[in-house]
Amino acid sequence: MYKACIAVCYSFAILLLALFALIVSDSGFTPASNSGAFLLQDLTTIRIWIVIAGALAFAWKVNRKEPRGLTVTVLTVLAWIMFLEDFMVLDSILFVAEHPVARAVVITRPIFLAALSYVALQQWELDIA
């Protein structure tokens, strides 16, 4: 279960990277309003760096066999905050998820959040043990 959840998290990260590459390269991804253009570019860019840094930090700690409960918890809290921001504010001004990759990101996001939260809880237990 734990390994499956980690696989879900990494799959979602890859999906996000693919979406980001599409946003950068494809002009079809336009914000729902012109005023949201900066927000779309800035927030997406910052978040992609957080995803890359988080995935690398986790992989690094796994490789070095260091405790990683705190790292995963920080990433989980940030993921939930981003979700709240999107759900409560940004959904209306960002792009409309018509592209299959964007739709896949929207659909798998709750699964990713649940998997990441499970990994965080499980990781604390593993670190203590």
Binding site: G36, L39, E85, M88, V89, L90
Partner: peptide, 11 residues
């Protein structure tokens, strides 16, 4: 932008 104000409220 209203959205900036809303984002601030959430944060």
């Amino acid at each position: 932008l209203v959205v900036d104000n809303q984002l601030h409220q959430v944060r």
